[in-house]
């Protein structure tokens, strides 16, 4: 597949199953994630959408007793295959977490952390440039440019989350996974993150897990509805919200349960 092709499929999952010890958390999920779109995973709590998201950059490896079967591919490469190095995978598939988790370091160091460990940039001016660029892309530059040496943990919740997005952008990933990035934020900060997602669309393949159906409708082009570990329905966001094919999807988006 050609990376430059804007309609290219970035990641694919084929018959993916996830088990926590004996308990099956994800059942037979097959999905294509496109490079030029924002894909939203929606569904009630405990439906497995975050678990599946964490499979896409193998963050589930850090959980003892977690086992993944099936194929998940990034640009056609099996990410659970022997040839794939998990460290490189995570540099290509970045992640933003539910609760903002800046390191207890300065704003500058938070951004510079990734490029430094990957040896992307060695000189100071190059690093300054990356920090500025990443913060600009994350829409945080104007707010923090005069206090780059202050601690990242001193920022407001919304700023911290944009700092975490900037931190992910700084290692130049191809995919950004967002695990309910706005659930700990107020409506104004949420709106800013949503604007940011819109701006980043096209440059990165974005997958966002959300509880908030309006958010999924606002930011995504594709939506996958998860229920009890299965992917019930996957399609264009407008179709899912206006004309769902499955009864369970309809029940959920009309608020009958969840």
């Amino acid at each position: 597949m050609n990376k430059q092709d804007v309609s290219a499929v970035k990641m694919t999952a084929l018959n993916c199953n996830v088990y926590y010890n004996e308990k099956q958390a994800i059942k037979d999920v097959t999905i294509d994630i496109r490079a030029d779109e924002v894909t939203a995973f929606i569904g009630p709590s405990g439906c497995g959408k975050s678990t599946f998201l964490r499979c896409l950059n193998r963050m589930n490896d850090t959980i003892a007793g977690c086992r993944v079967t099936g194929d998940i591919k990034l640009d056609g490469e099996d990410i659970y295959g022997k040839a794939m190095d998990v460290v490189q995978l995570r540099a290509r598939v970045g992640m933003v977490f539910q609760k903002p988790n800046p390191f207890p370091k300065s704003i500058y160091e938070n951004i510079a952390y990734g490029p430094r460990i990957h040896g992307l940039i060695s000189n100071k001016t190059g690093l300054d440039e990356v920090v500025k660029n990443s913060l600009q892309k994350a829409g945080l530059w104007e707010e923090v440019k005069d206090r780059l040496n202050e601690s990242g943990t001193a920022l407001s919740g919304g700023q911290q989350q944009r700092l975490c997005i900037a931190r992910a952008i700084a290692v130049n990933p191809e995919v950004i996974l967002m695990d309910e990035p706005c659930s700990a934020l107020d409506p104004i900060a949420t709106a800013k993150i949503e604007e940011l997602i819109e701006e980043l669309r096209g440059r990165y393949a974005i997958v966002i897990v959300t509880h908030n159906m309006q958010q999924a409708a606002r930011v995504s082009q594709k939506t996958a509805f998860f229920h009890l570990g299965s992917m019930v329905e996957y399609g264009a966001t407008t179709d899912i919200f206006t004309n769902p094919r499955k009864e369970r999807t309809k029940d959920y988006i009309t608020g009958r349960y969840g």
Partner: peptide, 10 residues
């Protein structure tokens, strides 16, 4: 903190 660092490919 640990997740944040690992997710950056550290």
């Amino acid at each position: 903190m640990r997740d944040g660092s690992l997710a950056l490919g550290a």
